[in-house]
Amino acid sequence: MGALIQAAKKEDYPAEIIGVFSNRRAAPGLDVARAEGIETATLAQSSFASREDFDTTLTGILESWSTDIVCMAGFMRVLTPSFVERWQGRAINIHPSLLPAFKGLDTHARALAAGAAEHGCSVHFVTPGLDEGPVIAQARVPVRPGDTAETLAARVLVEEHRLYPEALRMVATGKASLP
């Protein structure tokens, strides 16, 4: 998220970060956004009777900000079909693996356990299936002898910070769209 905010500060960047939402009040990204003068909002899912109610309220917040594209980073929730349908082709997510490999959690440890020679990150369109949407862009990093999940994650994170702003640029300019 911080990388997107920094990219959007450039005059020639085709997107503006207008709001940052989290389902965790203590998410560090909220402080980053506030320091940049960006509106923030939080909702605890536990305050809602259902996932549908939460996603409906979230959609209301996004609509109140006149959101065009939803960029997810570290938002560890499975979204409801109605939310995904509402933002179809306009919701993107960054995932720490070379999709379709290693969907879900613990991607770095799973890549090491599988003996992968390379790992990386993917930005993809959000669809109903977990980490199944069409890939917009990927970045690869080699898996090195002696890597741990932590050392591999650190190298992937560098690529995530580079890749996500570029993928958002592609979506914002129409160079990437949901087929």
Rank of each mutant, 00 (worst) to 15 (best):
T148Y: 04
F83R: 06
V70D: 09
A44G: 09
V158Y: 01
A154Y: 02
R25T: 05
E36P: 00
F125S: 00
A149M: 04
L168N: 08
G60R: 12
G60Q: 11
D55S: 10
L112A: 06
T148Q: 05
S177M: 15
A167K: 11
P128W: 05
Y164L: 10
A41Y: 05
F48L: 10
S47G: 13
R90S: 14
A114M: 07
G19F: 07
A26K: 15
G174W: 09
A111I: 05
S82A: 14
D147P: 12
M72V: 13
D53Q: 15
H108I: 02
Q138T: 11
G89Q: 08
R162L: 06
I17C: 06
A117D: 10
D53P: 07
V84A: 08
T67Y: 03
S177C: 14
G74L: 12
L79F: 11
V141N: 03
A116G: 02
D55K: 13
A101N: 13
H108E: 02
S22M: 13
H95I: 08
T42M: 05
A167E: 04
I18C: 01
A154H: 07
L130T: 11
F83L: 15
P145A: 01
G60M: 10
A109E: 14
R90N: 15
V84K: 12
K103Q: 11
R25D: 13
L58S: 05
I5K: 00
E160T: 06
A73N: 13
G74Q: 11
F83D: 01
Q45W: 09
T151Q: 06
R162P: 00
K9S: 08
R110W: 03
G2K: 14
P165Y: 00
I94G: 08
D106Q: 10
D131Q: 09
T173F: 11
A172T: 06
T107N: 06
P14R: 01
I5L: 10
C121Q: 03
G2Y: 06
Q45S: 06
R24F: 06
T151K: 10
A154R: 14
A167H: 09
V156W: 01
L98E: 07
F21V: 08
L79M: 15
F102T: 02
V156E: 01
E132H: 13
L112W: 03
M170C: 02
S64P: 05
L98M: 12
T42Y: 04
A3D: 09
A172M: 09
F48M: 10
A27K: 14
E36Q: 14
L58H: 12
V78W: 05
M170F: 04
H119Y: 06
H95F: 11
V123I: 03
A176S: 15
T127F: 11
R169I: 03
T59C: 10
L99F: 02
E39W: 00
R169Y: 05
N93D: 10
T127G: 07
L178I: 15
A167F: 04
I92L: 15
P14N: 00
A109P: 07
A8M: 08
T173L: 10
A91L: 14
